[in-house]
Simulated scan of single mutants.
Amino acid sequence: MLNKLALLIALVLSSIFVWAGSAPDPIINQAKVLYNQRKPATLQLREAAGLGDPEAQFYLAEELRRPFFAMPQEAYMWYEKSAAQGNIYSMYRLAFSNNGTCKALQTCPKGSKSASEWNTLLLQTAENRAAQGDSEAMSIMYFATKELKWLEQAADAGGPESQWLLANRYREGQGVFFIPSNRKKEEERLLKLAAANGLAIAQTEYAGLLADRGEHSVGEAWYLAAVKQSDIYALSGYAYMLEKGGFYTIPKDLSKRTRSIPLSRSSTPPGHYATKQEKA
C-alpha cells in the first residue's frame, strides 16, 4: 500500500467518502482542501472531524498516524468513529493496524473490535457494495485480498484511480497475457482512460509515456491538463520548465516562475513513468 501514498491515490487521492450531511459545511470543506493540497491541516481537520464528517475523521487519523512507526491511540479512535459511519478506508486501516512494528514495541492501540473483526466487517461491507457496482469497494477488496481480479473489476467499472493503479500493476509484471505485446497495449489503454477520466497523476504519467516516444505535442496537452488541476507534481515540473525550459513548448519565462508551490509529502509519485530526459 501497502504503500501509503499509493493507498491514498488509489483509494486515496480522490473523493474517498461522501458525507451524508444536508449541505457542505465550510469548515469541513476548508479542512479537506488543505489536506488534499498537502498543507498542514491538523487543526482544521480536528474541527471538521468533531462535526462528525467521516471523511474528515479519516483524514485526521491519517495525519495523526503519519509521523509514527506505529498507530497512536488518538488516530485509532478517529478511524473507529469514521468506520462506524461506514467508511471502508478507515475499516481497512483498523483491519491492518496491528502490524509487526506495534507488536514489537507493544504499542498496538486498543479499540472496540480486534483487527480480525474489523477485517471481517470490511470484507462484508466492501463485497456487498462491490456487488452493487461500487468501484471504490472493488478497489478496497483488492487491497484487502491482494486478488488482482478486484482491481480489474474496479477498472472496468470506471474508477480512474483503479485504472491508473492497474496500468502500473501490469507494468510491474502482474496479470497474465498470452500475447506479450498485449500487456503494453492494455497498460497504455488503462493509463489513457484514467487520464481522460480526469486523474491528474495519470495525466502526467501518460504525458511522460507520450514524450518518451517523441509525441511531445500530444503529451504536452495532457501535462497541462494536470497543471490546470493544480496537481503538485505537474505544478512543480511546470515551474521548473518556466525557469529552465524543457522538452515541451512551454516558453521559458522567469517572470512566471512559481515560488510558492508547497513541498509534497513524497518526492516521486508511485509508478511514475520516467521520460528519456529524466533518465539521462
Rank of each mutant, 00 (worst) to 15 (best):
S90V: 08
R93W: 06
R93D: 08
L94Y: 05
A95S: 14
S97H: 14
N98K: 14
N99R: 12
G100L: 15
G100T: 14
C102Q: 13
K103S: 11
A104M: 08
A104C: 00
A104Y: 09
T107V: 11
T107C: 08
T107W: 06
P109H: 14
K110R: 15
S112K: 08
S114D: 05
S114A: 10
A115T: 04
N119G: 06
T120C: 01
L121D: 15
L122V: 11
L122P: 10
L122E: 04
Q124L: 12
T125V: 14
R129L: 15
A131D: 06
A131C: 01
A131N: 07
G133N: 09
G133Y: 06
S135W: 05
E136Y: 09
A137M: 09
S139R: 04
S139E: 11
I140C: 10
A144T: 13
T145M: 00
K146W: 01
E147K: 06
K149R: 13
L151C: 08
L151W: 07
Q153M: 14
Q153A: 10
Q153L: 14
A154L: 09
A157L: 08
A157C: 13
G158M: 02
G159F: 10
G159L: 11
G159I: 00
P160V: 00
E161F: 06
S162I: 04
Q163V: 02
W164M: 00
L165F: 15
L166S: 06
N168A: 02
Y170E: 09
Y170D: 07
R171W: 07
R171S: 10
R171V: 04
E172Y: 13
G175V: 03
G175C: 05
V176I: 15
V176M: 13
F177D: 07
F177K: 11
I179S: 07
P180F: 05
S181Q: 15
N182K: 15
N182Q: 13
K184G: 04
E186A: 11
E188V: 15
E188F: 10
R189H: 13
L191Y: 01
L191V: 03
A194Y: 03
N197A: 12
N197S: 14
G198E: 11
A200P: 01
A202F: 04
E205R: 01
Y206G: 01
G208M: 00
G208N: 14
L209W: 13
L210H: 12
D212L: 01
G214M: 03
G214I: 00
H216I: 15
S217A: 12
G219V: 10
G219R: 09
E220H: 02
